[in-house]
Design a protein around this nucleic acid. Sequence first.
DNA 1: TAAAAATACTCCATAGGTATTTTAT
DNA 2: ATAAAATACCTATGGAGTATTTTTA
Lengths: 302, 302
Amino acid sequence: MELRHLRYFVAVVAEGHLTRAARRIGIAQPALTQQIKALEAELGIRLFDRAGRGIVATEAARAFAEEARAILARVDGAVQHARQVARGLAGRVRVGFTESASFHPLVTGSFHRFRARYPEVRLDLEEGDSTALAAGLAEGRVDAAFVRPPLPAAGTVRLDPLAAEAMVAALPVGHALAGRESLTLTDLAAETFILYPRAVRPGLADAVLAACEAEGFHPVVGQTTPQLSSTVNFVAAGIGVSIVPACMAEMRPKGVRYLPLVGPQPSAMLGIAWRRGEPAQAVRNFVATARAGRGALAAPPP
Amino acid sequence: MELRHLRYFVAVVAEGHLTRAARRIGIAQPALTQQIKALEAELGIRLFDRAGRGIVATEAARAFAEEARAILARVDGAVQHARQVARGLAGRVRVGFTESASFHPLVTGSFHRFRARYPEVRLDLEEGDSTALAAGLAEGRVDAAFVRPPLPAAGTVRLDPLAAEAMVAALPVGHALAGRESLTLTDLAAETFILYPRAVRPGLADAVLAACEAEGFHPVVGQTTPQLSSTVNFVAAGIGVSIVPACMAEMRPKGVRYLPLVGPQPSAMLGIAWRRGEPAQAVRNFVATARAGRGALAAPPP
DNA sequence: TAAAAATACTCCATAGGTATTTTAT
DNA sequence: ATAAAATACCTATGGAGTATTTTTA
C-alpha cells in the first residue's frame, strides 16, 4: 500500500463518485477504479458497494477513511515539522551552565531572547561544572554550555568568550575590613580563604590563585567547597573570606558583605562552548543568540 | 511522497548504513540512494550528512524518522481495524428499543451475549416508540430495533418476531378483584382502562383492544398515557386497570397487583427489526445474536 | 437512454537492477 | 587498500491514458 492509495481512497469516499473523484485528483476514471480495486485486494475487504449507478462506502470503508484522513494529515504535519527542525525553528537544544553562570545576565538574557525568538524550540537546561559540561559536549549529551574558561582541551569543542567579569570580595559582616568601601587584593593577603576545588572549577580557582601570586602572596585556603552557594554560606558563617564573580552578589544571604576590588585583581571569564561544525540549526541559533548578547554587557558596572 | 519513502527512510535511519538498509529492505543499494535523495528533494532538507564512509542522520531526520515510524504503525493499525470492522468484530451498532422491550429478558440477554462475544463493537442504545424506531431504521439513524409488531409498512425494513409474550392485568391493590388468583378478560369488561395511544404503540394497544372486542365488549378507556411506566403509576393511584406485557411486572410500584389472565387474552409480540440487505457485518451479527435467543424464552413462564 | 463503473489495450515514467567510479578511512 | 556511497545506464513493472463495453436507474 502507498499513500497514493489513501489519497485516492479519501477522495472517492468524499465524493461518493468515482468519475468525479478522478476528475478532482486529476487522473482518468479507469485508473482510479484500478487503484481502488488494488486497495481492496490488499486489505482483503470490500470498500464500496457497486450499484452500477454510483458507489456506496461500506462500514469498514468509512472507518478506514477516517484513519486515512488522519494519516495523511499527520504526514503533512511531519513534513512541516521536519522543515522547521531543519531551519532551527523547532526541536530541542540541551544547554548546560555552571553554577556561577546561572546568575549572569548574559546567560539568563540568552535564554529569554532565544525563547522569545524560537518559541517552538525546547530548551533542556542542565547545571554542571565546566569539566563535566566539556565532557557532555564531546559525548553529545549537551549541545551548548555556558562555562568558565579554560576548558580541558578537546578538538571538537569550540569556545567563545562572552565577557570578562569583575570579581568581588565576600566578607562576613563582622569582619574588620567589612566597613570599607573597597579593597585591594593585598588587603586580603593575611586572610583565610574559602575557595573551590581546582578539579571542578579550574577557571575561577586559577584566576584567583594567579592574581594572588601576582601580588606576591599565597592565599591560605581554610576550606574548599564545590558549590559557590556554599562558599558564600561559609563566608556568612565567619569561617573565612572569598572572592567570587560579581554576578554572585545576586545571592545575598544574611551575614555577607560584598566589596569591590580595586587595583590588580582576578577576572572571571564567561564563555559559551559548542561542538565545532554543529549541524543542528537550532543549536547554531542558540549559540548565535548567546554570542549576540556579548558586547552589550562586556564590562560590569563599576 | 509515498509510504515507500517512509519505509525506506526508517530502515536507513535504523541501520545508519545505506548498503545494510538496502539488503534488509531487499533492494539494491543504488535504488535506495535514489529514493532517499528523492525524499530529500521533496522535503527540501538534507536528511543525512554524507561522510563518504557511512552516513549520519541530521537532527531533522531524527525528528522525521520518529514521526515516520508512528505513521507506518498507524497505517498498520488502520488496516487491522478496517478488517475487524469488515468482519463485524469492531465498529458500532445503534440499537433502538421500545419501553416495554427494555424489560424483556430476550432484549437484555441479547445485549449481554453480544457484548461478551464482540467486545470491540460499541452498542449505542436508544429508547423510542415503535413508530419512531421504524422511521429511524428507514432513515439510517438506527441499525436494529426491538419493537412491538406490527410496524408501519416499509419495504426496506425487515422484522422478525422473537416471542409472543403473555400479558397480565394490573389492578390497584384495593380493587375488588385484586384478591383473586387469576382473571379472565371478561372479568374486566366493566372496568375503566388506562391504555396507551394507538399512534405511538399500535402493537400493544391493538392487541388489547382486539382481544376485548373478541370477548364482546368495548373497553372504557379512562386515560391514555404514552409511557408504560406512567400507565402502571396511574393504576397504582387507583384511576383504573390496565393490561401490560408480563415482563412489565418487573416494575412493581407500591399499590399495584399483577394477575395472570386465563382464557382468551391479548398477546404482546416482541420482534427485532433491521434494514433488509444490511451490509454492515456488525449489525448482522447483532441481529443474529438477538434471533439466536428466540426459542429459549419463547413461552413466558406460566 | 443516459450516466456511471468496469474491461481491454496501450504507453511510458520510474522503481529497481547491474556495472562502475568516487571518496574517505 | 577497502568499504561505502554516488553515478551511469539499462530494464521492466505497473500507473495512467484512450477506447469501449456493461450495468442499472
